[in-house]
Design a protein around this nucleic acid. Structure first.
Lengths: 238, 238
DNA sequence: ATAAAAAACGAGCGCTCGCTCTATAAATCA
DNA sequence: TGATTTATAGAGCGAGCGCTCGTTTTTTAT
């Protein structure tokens, strides 16, 4: 806070490496942010200790729950894998569900930012490219977070399930809005902007939900991004 | 068995109503089939009683687990919702996981049949249309089954997780094979048959995974099917 | 060096889980 | 009708759950 350098809005989105360098929701920054945004849940006083523990908690949670699910992962499993005692765990949590809540918070934050960046552009095709890249890049860096939220939404309260669902609907609506704008200008030719928007989103999701599919086929991030953008242009008759 | 009339291979796939009439994996037939295929797990001797109980078990399981997840659904919840006692439940199960195993079995069976039908066709574009329709139609009738398997694969043993994953990979491979065949004949023009195949699959999955999205937008099965097929033609430059 | 504050520890609490098992009821057969 | 098989009931079992809390260890301030 205060010293963050990239409050300017010229987000570099042309390649993953540069994007990754200026992406603020990762590593130390991410866990410090979690500490700041959840001080009501966290007993620890010092940011350094709390965020080190949070780091362990999330890394182990993603590791364990990706195989067996969040509910099947016990806090004793988590304690063993993090190396923290039960007390240690509960110094940065008030209850198990808090883990899922914090994931929701971060994914929501990043998704909103992605949508916002896409809508700032003036050229519609470029806008779609920006949307695709920022979504792919951020969900690559935060893959376990996006994956977790998708599969564990049902572990949340119904209020928060709606919140999670709305992240998806908002992104579709953002894409649809851009496409519709291009249709209105006569740049795009498409029957159903909604169908194209929802298709883009699920292809974006497939990237972080089933990374093994692309690993098996040796498709890397840049190839995937180009495939998708080429597909979008076909669907929009560009 | 024996009296099933549609062992001929002229499966009617041109509209949902006709397809639904001759689709054998539903209602009484489905639960009788489950009884026959899992007699090692089922204590009940009489098919009528066993399949009536299985029907209750699966309907309640899908209802309860779709909201909170399979593992979070306790057998006491299930007992209450089905109206069966614990003993009644365990007359058609040997353990909770059996429910998930039987879902895997049915979805695998139906998916294999879908792939087989698609590969029987000679014309590639028609073949894709058949694949899309049969997948959409069957997953509409068995929506809770397909949905359950997708979200509860992680409740299965790692051996069965692989089985579940392979259903998906086999379907993609089937679609890719058809597309590649069309490319070889010069009918289709496409960069990556695999990418188109995987995109088709995830759009098919979106239909049964997020039915509320299409309900909200008043998109029915026929519209969805046409949208998807039109998209496929665009991607294949037809 | 000493006192105060913060963090880590982990046994243990109350409870719910999947599952079993015996007693009872219902259906089927002789 | 009586005998036998089949199905249902649901209390109870041990294990494991999320979470707490008195205690100990470590850090920080004086």
């Amino acid at each position: 806070m205060g010293l963050t350098l990239d409050t300017n809005n010229t987000t570099n989105i042309s390649n993953f490496e540069d994007y990754s360098k200026q992406f603020e929701y990762q590593d130390q920054h991410l866990y410090n942010l979690l500490f700041e945004r959840n001080q009501d849940l966290i007993k620890s006083k010092k940011v350094g200790i709390a965020s080190a523990n949070l780091k362990k908690v999330f890394e182990s949670t993603f590791k364990l729950s990706s195989k067996i699910g969040f509910h099947e992962m016990s806090l004793r499993d988590l304690s063993k894998d993090t190396g923290l005692s039960m007390g240690g765990l509960y110094s940065c949590l008030t209850k198990k569900e808090d883990i899922a809540l914090m994931v929701l918070d971060i994914v929501e934050l990043v998704s909103d930012k992605n949508n916002q960046i896409a809508l700032e552009q003036t050229d519609e095709l470029h806008s779609l490219e920006i949307a695709i890249r920022s979504y792919l890049y951020s969900s690559t860096i935060l893959q376990p977070w996006f994956f977790f939220l998708y599969f564990e939404t049902r572990s949340l309260s119904s209020e928060n399930q709606i919140k999670s669902k709305n992240i998806e609907l908002t992104t579709i609506a953002t894409l649809e809005k851009i496409i519709q704008s291009g249709v209105d200008k006569g740049i795009f030719d498409v029957n159903s902007p909604y169908f194209v928007a929802t298709t883009i989103l699920i292809v974006l999701q497939d990237w972080y939900l089933k990374p093994w599919k692309n690993k098996e086929k040796n498709i890397d991030l840049e190839q995937y991004s180009k495939h998708l953008f080429r597909m979008v242009k076909k669907l929009l008759r560009i």
